[in-house]
Design a protein around this nucleic acid. Structure first.
Lengths: 409, 409
DNA sequence: GGTATTTGTTGCCTGTGACAACAATAGGGG
DNA sequence: CCCCTATTGTTGTCACAGGCAACAAATACC
């Protein structure tokens, strides 16, 4: 049992704390632990939070009455003394995760414990307009609801979009690959479904998912790099908090300039990480146009072509430099790679690490772990659902949850 | 009057909140507001914190009894109704700021309201060893104490060192320009003076000073770049919190690689910001070896030499690219420049901004302010003192403050 | 000078977590 | 097989901190 003593770290916000806040805070702490940790014993909650046994009992009962957690009789024994009750997030609480991409829109049902229980993918010929994507998402959600148990309750909808998002009002300021400009996607989907909807950048939410449930579990400082057909996206966790920037447009890690090259990325900036580590270059080398990430992964793992190997090595060197820059800035415990970045990493880990070491101070990369993502394509969906769970977790007793009938057929 | 409603932002830490925490938290909130804001009316405290009038009264009385704040009869009127009492941080509480540099060690007396009331500078021929610097600091502190009013009380000592610091135990892991390696400077100074001592990186503490008292006042996201004879140092504030990294070695902004150049920085990395924007290059162009920052500043402002102008423009382009990379990553409200970086910025602001715009996404630099530091050489001292005030601010009722007699002569 | 407005002060109330005592449930030893 | 120890859940009581309302104080405005 690890007892974590948290001093008053972080910023002293300007808000005073009153009696209601204290209760809300403690309920939130427990929900947060259960969300990330899954099933925990009540005795664990006691020692981790530092709260009294009786207090934990009281709080857990309240959460149980709210229907967002369940208690089960002592699961395992193993130690002396009376066995502690197990507490789990309720499987009846779900959120819908929506991910519009160039060639398809995907919707998933994700439980409060971070599991994907169902999924629908709707392919499109060309990239859908925002209104169209909203309609598709609405229809898929209605389809998914038919297969859900009647007792299921819904926290809301989380949307992950490859672009720059104003999270305050859920408007996509610019999504270059989808060709969306100033698209109020949250309002559109909310209109279609009647459910509260939140939006954020796809890499940002994936980062959070890997941090909560994947390779970055427990890391206070984590850098996440994701690459697919839509360029390189990034997410950063600093002191346990997602980096968003003053206006919400931060952590665009694909667009940091690291070399003099004339090669430009999708946004027109030269010499950026995205310009120099390009998926299309690999596809061209393999003559594999339109391949999925999985197909590309297999191809990379098995290639013997010296020309291709040279290309991959070059990309590894460039990626390593980018990671080096990020390590120098953030000094993270872990850098998580996803998509084809992970494929080339697995092809030659030593080369990437050597490049990272060559382009950062030893203090920054000492003890740094570079790792593949654990969640793969699930990250973006689990992360998007997390957007919808966030209000419930931060204020369990004051957040509405909806019945299936809330969504009109 | 601005009423700030703070939702439960930030990370839900794992610590539960009990009755003692709530009181400590509220006392801390008030101290924090007073530290940053100087004198405030009690009515302002009420509206900003959201706490009840009677609660604020109670808290303020407790802080007054602790001797760390003072109340004065209604300073100004201006509105209808009974005038509110003014509350100020006590001027009798001070901290010592220590700044060891290559050519001198400086110690200042800084009040809780962020004012430097006295200062001593002790020049050295060559860079002092850590033990030597500690002895110098100890002697200067004893000298300074002689001139302080007898009622003065001391929060502690804050040390700002140009190098990589383990803040947990106050050990300088590496300070290249001072040639210190694994130097337990905090313990040494504590030994000399008997006062509790904290250490941190000089750019990091300067950043915090500019954020609390200077150009970056009120910014939630702030990037700070400082350059002197010891290369380029950086500090970043993210969501109001200083970025330190997992092990405390983050925000080494001078060492991010942005070009292919073979030019190396002091740490041996090629193509970094520090390698491409070099103070020594300017000194050489001016034939001004050993000049102070102020002398260099005047020289830059008045130069007509086309060759020098070309050099400055080149440095501005490189600096702009570095700032562009940082803007892309952090999306800050403000970038604050200090030292000769500020001098070349003032020489041609448009050129720097053009370079920033050319090397970042518009979403990242829209609304971005690039600004000169307000505090100048005071920043590092005010910031260092902040290290010693931090425990007092985060736990006013549980932190010891020392009488002058604590320091043996 | 009277009224409205704002703020400080005081006494009382309530909610929330701590604490202690007891009950329940496990393992270990003679 | 019983007893002892260790751990956890439960219950009732307590203390503390902030909210609230009423009143007093001090200002501006008419």
């Amino acid at each position: 049992m690890i007892v974590i003593k948290v001093l008053h770290s972080g910023p002293a916000g300007s808000a005073g704390q009153n009696r209601e806040n204290i209760r809300q805070h403690n309920l939130s702490i427990i929900m947060n632990l259960l969300y990330k940790g899954g099933t925990l014993a009540r005795s664990q909650l006691t020692s981790v939070t530092g709260l009294n046994r009786s207090t934990i009992s009281d709080l857990v009962v309240e959460l149980e009455e709210l229907g967002i957690i369940t208690q089960s009789e002592a699961v395992t024994s193993g130690g002396v003394g009376r066995p502690s009750l197990s507490v789990s997030p309720s499987d009846s609480i779900v959120a819908f995760a929506v991910n519009p991409e160039i060639d398809a829109t995907t919707v998933a049902v994700v439980t409060l414990s971070g599991e994907i229980v169902d999924k629908r993918r709707y392919p499109t010929q060309i990239q859908p307009a925002a209104q169209e994507a909203a309609k598709i998402a609405g229809q898929l959600i209605k389809d998914l609801i038919k297969d859900l148990p009647a007792k299921t309750r819904i926290a809301g909808i989380g949307v992950a979009v490859p672009g720059q998002i104003r999270i305050d009002d859920g408007v996509v300021r610019l999504a270059p690959h989808l060709n969306w400009i100033e698209a109020p996607i949250a309002a559109m989907i909310q209109q279609e479904t009647g459910l509260p909807t939140w939006v954020d950048n796809d890499a940002t939410v994936s980062c959070m998912a890997e941090r909560n449930f994947g390779s970055g579990r427990g890391a206070s400082h984590c850098v996440y790099l994701f690459a697919g057909s839509g360029g390189i996206g990034g997410g950063v966790v600093v002191s346990g908090v997602q980096l968003r920037g003053a206006a919400g447009y931060g952590s665009e890690l694909g667009h940091i300039q690291i070399f003099d090259s004339k090669k430009t990325d999708f946004s027109g900036l030269p010499g950026t990480l995205e310009a120099l580590v390009k998926r299309d270059d690999l596809l061209e080398a393999f003559k594999l146009f339109g391949a999925t990430d999985d197909e590309l992964d297999v191809e990379i793992a098995n290639t013997k072509d010296q020309k291709v190997i040279k290309l991959i090595n070059n990309q590894l060197d460039n990626l390593g430099r980018g990671i080096g820059v990020l390590a120098t800035i953030f000094n993270p415990q872990i850098v998580v790679l996803e998509g084809f970045l992970d494929s080339i990493f697995k092809f030659n880990k030593e080369r990437l690490l050597a490049s990272v070491h060559a382009s950062s101070l030893s203090s920054a990369h000492d003890g740094l772990v570079v790792s593949s993502g654990e969640l793969g394509t699930r990250a973006v969906l689990v992360g998007a659902a997390g957007l919808a769970f966030a209000p419930l977790i931060s204020n369990p007793s004051g957040t509405e949850i909806y019945k299936l009938s809330k969504v009109s057929a």
